[in-house]
């Protein structure tokens, strides 16, 4: 296994779906935060938005193989 392949597997895992899903999840969370404003409901409830997006990324990584 080459050094690049090892590093890719170490950091991104065996599938591209999970890191791609996480990227989408964080991009969506940042977008929602920008729309909602950092002092509004985001501060108390934004964690649940991120949790939901991360769970969706996990489920997608199990379905798309």
């Amino acid at each position: 296994m080459s050094a690049f392949t090892y590093l890719r597997k170490l950091l991104l895992g065996e599938t591209w779906v999970l890191p791609a899903g996480l990227t989408v999840a964080f991009a969506a969370a940042v977008l929602v935060r920008e729309v909602a404003g950092t002092d509004g409901w985001w501060e108390s409830s934004g964690g649940f938005v991120l949790l939901g997006l991360v769970l969706a990324a996990l489920v997608a990584s199990l379905r798309i193989r």
Binding site: F26, A29, V30, R33, T38, W42, E43, S44, G46, G47, L50, L51, V54, L55, L58
Partner: peptide, 27 residues
Amino acid sequence: GVFLAAEGLGVEWPLGDAALLYVGAAL
């Protein structure tokens, strides 16, 4: 990961560190 990343995005978790328990339970 969810707990810390959310805090990095400016979230204050209800119940503080105990949020780790309900985040873990949801996962």
